[in-house]
């Protein structure tokens, strides 16, 4: 109930702000949405794992990094486009995710939740450093002409390619919603996420569900890794900053609230770009992210107390 009211207030605020800024500084909205799309599409798979398996996966960004290198190798070797390579790469990362789950995370599920956190921290270090050994820290980037796709409206010229991430984020939310509400496996996953013990009692194989969700989420992040290389250079540490960002977005949306991640990303993307648009506030663009997170979390806790 409180969640829904929150969402409504969010929506109203965003609409008002967007309308105002769109007239005043159109680029803030354009670039804000593009940034939001990227944030959200990386955070959503992590939100899925956190919402259902209840694990903070500190190796989340590293899975994306592994997928990015995989795509890079496939694309340079076969001369294909990352948008083609993303499907096999997603399948391979899903498999890798499943194996990692079976070998490590499953063993730590019964331990306190902090163990899983540190376990994935160890995974993150190992993956980053392994990539460093294999590829060195020198960055790699493939060039694609379509990345510079441009649109001009009057005086204003801006890149449109990054809207791809907005589309991906929206597709992810819709896809996950369909999966979780329409399919048997999805319904089981939802039930396990809400109450693993109860789900086990009614005969749902919790372990299998966890494995499936973990594989699905790593597959999604693998797909993101493939598309990520069109936009960004890759290097061993490329994924780790996104882990924290994703974690913060999920907390802001509220754990288990996947569409909320989209809203939180839009709010952050636009606020960040708003600050970046002015000389005096440019340097402070980073802070808005964290101030908003604290405000939202504290606000929700106070509201929760009252209700």
């Amino acid at each position: 109930m409180a969640n829904k009211r929150n969402a409504a207030i969010f929506a109203a605020l965003i609409v008002a702000a967007v309308a105002g800024i769109l007239v005043w500084r159109p680029t803030v909205i354009i670039y804000g949405l593009q940034a939001a799309g990227l944030y959200a599409s990386i955070a959503i798979p992590m939100g899925l794992i956190l919402g259902i398996v209840h694990i903070v996966n500190l190796a989340h960004g590293e899975f994306m990094m592994v997928a990015a290198y995989l795509t890079y190798m496939v694309c340079t070797a076969l001369g294909i486009d990352p948008f083609v390579a993303m499907i096999p790469v997603a399948l391979v990362t899903a498999l890798v995710g499943f194996i990692v789950y079976k070998l490590t995370i499953r063993q730590a599920l019964k331990a306190p939740e902090l163990n899983q956190l540190i376990l994935t921290f160890g995974l993150a270090i190992s993956l980053t450093q392994l990539a460093n050994l294999l590829f060195t820290s020198q960055t790699r980037k493939m060039s694609f002409g379509y990345v510079s796709a441009s649109l001009s409206i009057g005086e204003l010229s801006f890149g449109v390619y990054n809207f791809v991430f907005v589309a991906i984020a929206v597709l992810m939310v819709i896809g996950l919603r369909l999966f979780l509400t329409r399919t048997t496996a999805g319904k089981a996953a939802l039930a396990v996420g809400q109450n693993p013990k109860g789900a086990a009692i009614v005969g749902i194989d919790v372990d299998k569900t966890y494995g499936l969700v973990f594989a699905l989420a790593t597959g999604m992040v693998g797909m993101m890794g493939a598309i990520f290389i069109t936009r960004s250079s890759i290097f061993p540490a490329v994924g780790s900053p996104f882990t924290m960002k994703s974690f913060c977005l999920i907390a802001m949306a509220g754990i288990g609230n996947i569409p909320g991640i989209l809203g939180a990303s839009v709010l952050l993307g636009i606020s960040e770009n708003f600050l970046k648009a002015f000389r005096e506030t440019r340097g402070w663009a980073d802070i808005v992210f964290f101030v908003l997170i604290i405000t939202v979390i504290l606000g929700r806790s106070i509201k929760g107390k009252k209700a």
């Binding site: 730590a108 160890g122 190992s126 450093q129």
Partner: peptide, 18 residues
């Protein structure tokens, strides 16, 4: 490459000494 081993140590200790 020492940090690879470092990461693996963390994983192993967590797995075998929860």
């Amino acid at each position: 490459g020492h940090l690879v081993v470092y990461g693996i140590i963390i994983i192993l200790v967590i797995l075998f000494m929860p």
